[in-house]
Simulated assay, not measured.
Amino acid sequence: MITSRRAFFTAATATALAAALSACSQDVPTSSATGTPTPQPVLDSDRLTAILERVQTGLDAADADKNADALAGYLTGPAARVRKEEYQVASATEDDSFVHTFTTTSQAGTVALANDFPRTVLTITDFADDEQGYLLALTQDSARDNYQLWAWTQLFAGVEIPSTYAPAIGTEQIAADDATDLAASPQEVLDAYVDALNDPDGENGKAFADDVLRQRIAAERAVDLSEAGEVSVTAKAGSDGFSSLRTADGGVITMTTLSFATVYKKTVAGSTLSLSGSTVGALMGDDQEVAGTVTADYDVMVAFLIPPADAEDTTATALGMDLVLASVSRDDSQAPAEEETAD
């Protein structure tokens, strides 16, 4: 495993890689009436740099005015949705720090070997020694579309990630249900991780490391509302799909989404349960009292490392995440009944 922050992706030149990996190098496809063209790297390093600069320009312009409409053509999928949600929270709280800023300047990246669409690119941003880098996934949905930022995650401290191939070489793009030569498919890993979030003492809960997201959800559940009510948290897998590329050791880096809902429920009639002063309260508007239930829904982008099937340790690892409070809803009809008083 590579621990140096400057060695997240392999920095070997295309020539050196081609010599060392001649069995995996890609020849220029020959014309054939019946054969399928050999998959080629979808981008080279110069084009990847230009794409990232373009995305940065569009993102900066949208951020300046917190204008979600201006994200079109630059961000797509969960990235566009989460950014819009960040703008909403920043406006409600009057705190722009809820818009998670990062540079798209790439330390290095890897690209899919593909002939068809969509096409996936993964890259890690440059960052200072005292910071955590961001892992970015970009996608191109068709030949007529520009590459757009599909998701980002901030890496957890101390994660170790194997190297991947430089853009001139490219790497295999993995489908959601593909477990070929892997410890598990991307979908299976996501489902297991969601189970770990919902049942931290269960088998999957004990398999995954105690990362920042697990700690956040544990903290939400630990809030003591016993004098007025109760709190519960439930996670579920997202429906955005996956962006997954093979690593040099045969594993996979995959990015996807999940969500969790924190429900605040008033159970003691006559008590006061207020969420004022919190981010959830800010999104409730003027009335920040819980009469029945208030549900805070969180949107999460998450990245995993899936080991190859023949690895010594086949446990998948959560690499990083980013989350935002997506929405808040209330149901006053769930208010506890007032106790009747005797005549």
Rank of each mutant, 00 (worst) to 15 (best):
E339P: 04
L273I: 02
F9Q: 07
A16R: 00
V82R: 12
D46F: 03
D116E: 07
G281A: 04
D126W: 06
V263T: 13
L59I: 10
L21C: 01
Y147P: 06
A19F: 00
S22K: 01
N115H: 04
A19I: 01
T256H: 15
T180R: 05
S163Y: 02
E338S: 14
A11M: 11
P162G: 05
D240G: 02
S243R: 11
T317E: 15
D60T: 09
T120E: 13
Y193W: 12
D65M: 09
A108K: 08
L275F: 09
I253C: 07
T272P: 03
S25H: 00
A64Y: 12
F242H: 10
L17A: 00
A92I: 06
E227Q: 06
T256E: 13
K265H: 10
P162C: 06
N146H: 08
E227G: 03
D44Y: 01
A108Q: 10
A137N: 11
A143M: 10
P29V: 01
T123E: 08
T153D: 02
A269I: 03
G277N: 03
A79H: 06
F242Y: 15
E338N: 14
G109Q: 04
D141E: 13
D181I: 03
D313V: 05
S327V: 07
A261P: 03
V231T: 12
N115L: 03
T341H: 07
E340N: 13
D177F: 09
D27K: 00
S32W: 02
R81D: 06
T247K: 00
M301N: 12
A269F: 04
